[in-house]
Nucleic acid binder design. Structure first.
Lengths: 192, 192
DNA sequence: CTTAACTCGTACAGCACTGTACGAATTATT
DNA sequence: AATAATTCGTACAGTGCTGTACGAGTTAAG
């Protein structure tokens, strides 16, 4: 049982197991932040003991799942064209990322129950920075408002996205219209 | 142990105990949605058995706590002057209620873990209706936008308030400025 | 083919919590 | 003062989870 931390050589089937576990963890925790280790192992089609062979405890597993979700998010975001007016860039960023953020709401809640706040913020630093940069740029262009703390503007993006996710899950917002609504709502908040 | 549901006559000390328990439950669950029955009893300065004498189970207790928080909210809201432009009414409503909503975020989370969704929405019906009425009025006056579903507009108010609560708790938003920021943010979202 | 890595079942100890049972002491109410 | 309500400790059964221990069977890698 090689510790996940060491860079020790791993067999191919182990790699596959780990991938399936992380993926299952993401899925399960995104549905129910209190999903048990057992649930996740079953969803991964793997014995609980196999799971414990790769992740010492729940904390490590949740962290890996969150990291995976963030990685997927970064991947999507890095494909977005950043040229043009800030308003438009914002729309493009949201269009391609709202759903992944939405799916990860519950996962984030799970993480908040197990990981220290500092660790979570640290993991989010990348995406947060990306949003902050965009907002600052919009402010420089005169397109975005400057009468509220930048930290609030950055985080309110998260809150609106999570809200939209909730509406989605509850069936009060149709998936087709969610993108537009998120964009319109956030443009209204950020516009000068 | 008289069931809470029956309108049976109760002794004065029992009334007092119940009040203290409900109040403690509100406080504890608002800090930690997973607070145990024991925690709450201790906080109320009461034995766990006394608590079980008045509330059959956790579910009943959480429901009572949520009901109390909502009652307190309604009380504050019913004092607000509803005359004048919708924008101003909105500002007044938010000014006097944001903090109580903020405090109850975690309590609501606790309720969501125990009570059926339908029940929670039912309990919220009053406040939700109040917000919806205001928004419709603003729309009739031409002050509020009409290009998004009314349900989204109503709920986004909640989400922004909860977000502000979070920022507050994390110390990223000073309590003095939170009111203004919530108002400005929501006015931006709702404005036509 | 040999070895080390991996899988995974069963079993167990531990924890934290819920809700119940019993019963004795206290206290409001009349 | 009599009565019934209330308080509340202790004790217990039950549940559902976490993480560990052991060990036998399977499989990738050289």
């Amino acid at each position: 049982m090689p510790p996940a931390s060491t860079g020790r050589r791993r067999r191919a089937d182990a790699e596959r197991s780990i991938a399936r576990i992380v993926s299952a963890a993401r899925a399960c925790l995104s549905r129910d932040p209190n999903a048990s280790i057992d649930d996740i192992a079953k969803a991964a089609g793997v014995g609980r003991m196999t799971l414990y062979g790769h992740f010492r405890n729940r904390k490590e597993l949740v962290e890996a799942a969150l990291a995976d979700a963030l990685r997927a998010g970064e991947e999507v975001l890095s494909d977005v064209d950043l040229d043009g007016p800030a308003q438009d860039v914002l729309a493009r960023l949201l269009e391609s990322s709202w759903s992944i953020v939405a799916e990860s709401t519950a996962l984030l809640a799970a993480a908040q129950g197990v990981l220290p706040v500092a660790r979570i913020r640290e993991m989010h630093a990348g995406s947060a920075q990306r949003v902050e940069d965009l907002i600052r740029r919009g402010q420089d262009e005169g397109a975005f408002r400057t009468d509220m703390p930048i930290a609030w503007l950055v985080n309110v993006v998260q809150y609106v996205l999570h809200g939209a996710a909730e509406e989605n899950r509850a069936g009060r917002l149709k998936p087709e219209e969610t993108g537009r609504i998120v964009i319109v709502t956030l443009q209204s908040i950020l516009a000068a």
